[in-house]
Structure formats: structure tokens, C-alpha cells
Amino acid sequence: MYLVSLSDRVVYCGNPVHKRNPGDFGLSPPAGPRPGKSLCDTAAIFEKAVAGELLKEGARRGLVSRQVNNDWPQNIWAVTDDGMPLEAQLENRETGAYHGYPMPPTDPFVELVMTEWEARRP
């Protein structure tokens, strides 16, 4: 029940440091990729609704961190239809807004995210 409630309440807001192409995210500033930051563009997610649905699906499947900030998990993970693992990080602990980015392939947590995403398929 908690996961369904969480998935209904989380919001995807994006973050300009992870964007080269701002798509329809309405970010301010529009885009400002920073060296060393992974870019959402590599996941080919240019629509805020798509990013939001992935965030909600990650919450529904229970791919959430144990670390909680004001009742919001610090991180939520998801996987695109193309098999790219994503990590969302809490941006606003009052509203439950998150920004996300592709996980680096060298991250040892990628394998667990991929395995759990498939194991928890509805």
C-alpha cells in the first residue's frame, strides 16, 4: 500500500545540469550540462511525462532507497524499455520532487537494479 501511495505522490522535476536538450521539461535555466554529470540525453528521454512515469513505476516496484528524507526515499531506480538503468534523486523533500539520470555502467549497483526491475515486473 505504501508503494502505491508513494508512486501516486512522487513528481519528476528534472535538473538542468543533467540536460543538453531540455525537451519539454520547462527547466530554468533551460539546460546547463556540467562536466562530470551524466546526461539524461543518453537515455533518449526528452519528455517530462516519460521521465515521470518511469519514476512512478520505480516506486510501484519498490526500487526505493532505505534512506528517507521527510518521508521521501532519497533515491528511486527504474529501467527504460531499452534496458538503461536510471537513478532518481530527491530534489525537494517538501514536495517529493525528483531529478534523474542514467546510471554509469561502472556502478556496481546497476546489476541489482536490473535484476530487481525484472523480478518485480507487474
Rank of each mutant, 00 (worst) to 15 (best):
D107Y: 06
A97H: 09
D41E: 11
A51K: 01
E94V: 01
D82P: 01
V68H: 05
M114L: 15
A44Y: 10
V113A: 12
R120P: 10
A97Y: 04
A88K: 02
E53I: 02
L27R: 02
P22C: 08
K56S: 12
D41N: 13
L112M: 12
V68P: 00
E87V: 14
A78F: 03
P108Q: 04
E47R: 15
P102D: 08
V110G: 10
T80K: 05
V17S: 10
G14C: 05
V110R: 11
M103A: 03
V17Q: 12
I76W: 08
C40D: 10
Q74K: 15
V17G: 09
V10H: 01
K56N: 10
V11K: 12
E91D: 14
P73D: 11
G96A: 04
P102M: 05
N15F: 06
H18C: 09
P104C: 04
W77F: 11
R61N: 00
P33Y: 10
E116R: 15
S7W: 00
K19I: 09
V110T: 14
H99N: 09
H99R: 04
I45E: 00
D82E: 14
R9Y: 03
L112G: 01
T95L: 12
S5D: 13
L112F: 12
A59S: 01
D107M: 13
V79L: 06
P104K: 15
H18V: 03
G52R: 07
V17F: 00
H18M: 08
R93T: 04
S65E: 05
T42W: 09
P85I: 00
L27A: 02
L54G: 06
T115P: 00
D107L: 13
T80C: 05
Q67T: 15
K56Y: 08
Q74D: 13
D82W: 02
M1T: 06
E94W: 01
G14N: 13
P33D: 08
P30Y: 00
P102N: 02
T115E: 14
F109P: 00
V10M: 01
L86E: 10
R34G: 00
I45T: 07
L54F: 07
S65T: 08
I45D: 06
G83Y: 03
G52S: 14
V64W: 00
D8C: 12
L54D: 01
D82G: 06
V4S: 07
Y98F: 05
R20A: 14
V64K: 03
